[in-house]
Design a protein around this nucleic acid. Sequence first.
DNA 1: TATTGTTATACTCTATAACTATA
DNA 2: TATAGTTATAGAGTATAACAATA
Lengths: 141, 141
Amino acid sequence: MTDPNRELAEHFNRRLRDVVLLLRRVSADQPVTSQQASVLGSLEGGPRRMTELADEQGVRLPTMTALVNRLERDGLAARGRDASDARVVTVEITPAGAAQLHATRERRTEALAERIAALDEEQRAAIAAALPALDRLFDPS
Amino acid sequence: MTDPNRELAEHFNRRLRDVVLLLRRVSADQPVTSQQASVLGSLEGGPRRMTELADEQGVRLPTMTALVNRLERDGLAARGRDASDARVVTVEITPAGAAQLHATRERRTEALAERIAALDEEQRAAIAAALPALDRLFDPS
DNA sequence: TATTGTTATACTCTATAACTATA
DNA sequence: TATAGTTATAGAGTATAACAATA
């Protein structure tokens, strides 16, 4: 007897591959990489420490150092210092970074909306109905 | 008035970010990168030409040359020649490559199945009901 | 001439190991 | 000693430009 959860997982897994390929095509000509856009997304809610950023992005600290170096070089983010602990480096998004994040997000949303518009009403409703479950399924915790 | 397709797209877009981060965490300790696994997936149905592989993966030809070089070096794929056109290079998966693909896929499916099992029945049903729509939404064409 | 693929080169993303500075 | 971060180094993934071989 087959585990229905497993079958669901297998089907979903196959679909995820197409999602990744689609996102790559959509983001190919953007001036920031998808990783840079993701870090900018983490900075959207306010300044973050290097350690927090690395944890959120699932990368090591030296990787985040390099990522923030490039964001800073390109004027998209800026380093700061924590008043209460001299070891801590904070990072915040610049206006240029926020503008770029918005543009990148807009581009991806456009591409998705276009594809959603090509579905029939029933399919759109099915996706809308599944979103709360997807929120929980991919909740980072 | 807000476009409902756009709102759906925005919501979905936010969720995709979490998906990407989850996949990274799950694949972090695998012996092949997610890109290598994706190329192996393209080879699963039989030999492919370099050009086909590059198109399917959304990368340029020189990038695919490098990817296949590494797969060949690691014994996961093998180059061949086309009988009717001497310019064409074919690539096929090796038994070791197929085994690795299976292991990587298994790992990701496990992680997904675990999370799906943590949902309630209603949420699982909502995701199952949305899968045909997702198939069409992300159909690469 | 056009197509198929590789080589040369450079940049981003990533990790581990070693280091500095502060707590 | 432990924590926060950077530097050094190496390898994967990516692109463009230039090249070789074949059609």
